[in-house]
């Protein structure tokens, strides 16, 4: 075992993993985390705690992740390269490990332009590839990035990264995934999948290169409540592929509650699809602003109870 995290044990045992997301609040309220953690407890194997996502200031991912941990929910600490240099990142990696966190997701981070402090200076001392490499060195080589040894108590993380099967240039996406694996990634969570056909093509290329045997790949899925949300992602979020049929299907349903039900159904169908795609080892749910739906989806997808891997 690299970290011995629950997520690692689930995947190593061959179970179909389920992770979801827990967005920290824009204030210092610990109960907000506890409430969101309650939707995750027993329903997912681990929950990603986002790191100032879309560059909006929120409670720190390590602090919020530690609160989730105290509620019995295993966090996947997200860490972005936008806000910290290698000194601060390594310091936080040591701190997160000391607090009992065992999964770390390495990201470049949304550009500061998109957030509530567009005036900020972006750091980007490292990129996500170099961050993966640094966390792996700290764990496996027991050294800091500078090469200085970590004498004992090295931070041991199950190392994750994101992959976007839908961004350009398409034929480079597999190379980029291979690079992340070469840098030391253990698991991958993909960008939200709405375009199943394109995801299937991507996974076929992944399998052809044998990459699915070198890292666990979790398919990213986002339950949505309206066609507006889908349209927004299609138009405004770069590197997203949203088929028009899906938008039309949501638009055809008029009643608000029925729309919600349609959104759940779409997500359940997607889960069923990705379960049967070779190389997919689990799902990552991203119910942004709709965390309460996680237990419903996991239950109706027949993914409960979560396996016991103690």
């Amino acid at each position: 075992m690299k970290s011995g995290s629950r997520l690692e044990r689930i995947l190593a045992a061959g179970h179909f993993a389920v992770t979801s997301e827990l967005g920290p609040p824009k204030n210092a309220d610990p109960d907000n985390i506890r409430k969101k953690a309650s939707y995750c407890l027993g329903n997912v194997d681990a929950a990603n705690v986002t790191d100032n996502q879309t560059a909006i200031v929120r409670m720190s991912s390590i602090a919020a992740g530690t609160i989730a941990l105290s509620c019995g929910v295993e966090p996947v600490i997200q860490m972005v390269c936008r806000d910290r240099n290698r000194i601060a990142m390594q310091s936080d990696i040591l701190g997160a490990a000391a607090l009992g966190c065992k999964n770390l997701l390495c990201l470049s981070g949304d550009h500061q332009k998109f957030g509530n402090h567009p005036q900020a200076s972006g750091v980007y001392d490292l990129d996500s590839m170099q961050l993966i490499d640094m966390v792996r060195r700290m764990r496996d080589d027991k050294t800091f990035l500078s090469g200085e040894p970590i004498k004992d108590h090295e931070p041991r993380f199950f190392i994750g990264a994101a992959a976007n099967p839908f961004a350009d240039p398409l034929n480079f996406r597999i190379t980029r995934l291979a690079k992340k694996i070469a840098a030391g990634v253990d698991f991958i969570q993909t960008q939200c999948i709405f375009d199943i056909d394109r995801f299937e093509q991507y996974m076929k290329m992944v399998v052809d290169r044998g990459l699915h045997e070198k890292a666990y790949i979790l398919a990213g899925l986002a339950p949505v409540r309206s066609e507006r949300a889908l349209q927004y992602m299609k138009d405004e979020v770069p590197g997203m592929s949203v088929p028009d049929e899906l938008i039309a299907r949501m638009a055809a349903v008029k009643d608000k509650d029925e729309k919600m039900e349609e959104g759940i159904k779409i997500c359940l169908e997607m889960i069923e699809c990705v379960k049967h795609i070779e190389g997919v080892r689990g799902i990552h749910l991203m119910p942004v602003g709709w965390e309460s739906i996680t237990p419903v989806i996991v239950e109706r997808a027949g993914l409960l109870p979560r396996p016991d891997v103690a």
Binding site: H111, G122, D127, S128, D168, F172, K179, P238
Partner: peptide, 21 residues
């Protein structure tokens, strides 16, 4: 590169354009 990446492109590259602008 808006993120000064050395291992790009990032996931925000679409249609040859940068996600930032």
């Amino acid at each position: 590169c808006a993120k000064r990446l050395f291992n790009g492109p990032c996931g925000g590259s679409a249609g040859g354009r940068c996600e930032v602008d």
